[in-house]
Amino acid sequence: MADVAEAAEQILVSTVEAPHDTPADWTPNVLAFACHYCAFAAADLAGVMRLSYSPSVKIIRLPCTGKLDHIHILSAFEKGVDGVFAAG
């Protein structure tokens, strides 16, 4: 039985994929869901202050992050976004 368990363990371990190589110039596409009243206002202020952030971050303004639903996040991932940032 111990051999069987060990073999099963080895099979399990062998199925773990090696991490993909990440190109040095790769930047993740991030979608930010921002609350109109705080995080979006902060991003706006950042713009006024001429502060910059990565162009790979796209912002969607929500009336409140309470409006954010599971399906919005899943849809983003389905469309290939690498990360979702909820700010509110």
């Binding site: 639903d69 599971h70 399906i71 899943l74 991932f77 389905e78």
Partner: peptide
């Protein structure tokens, strides 16, 4: 409907 929508989205990602 909501759970069906989420499940469909997850299944589409798995298929991909």
């Amino acid at each position: 409907s909501k759970e069906a929508e989420l499940l469909a989205s997850m299944l589409r990602m798995r298929a991909k």
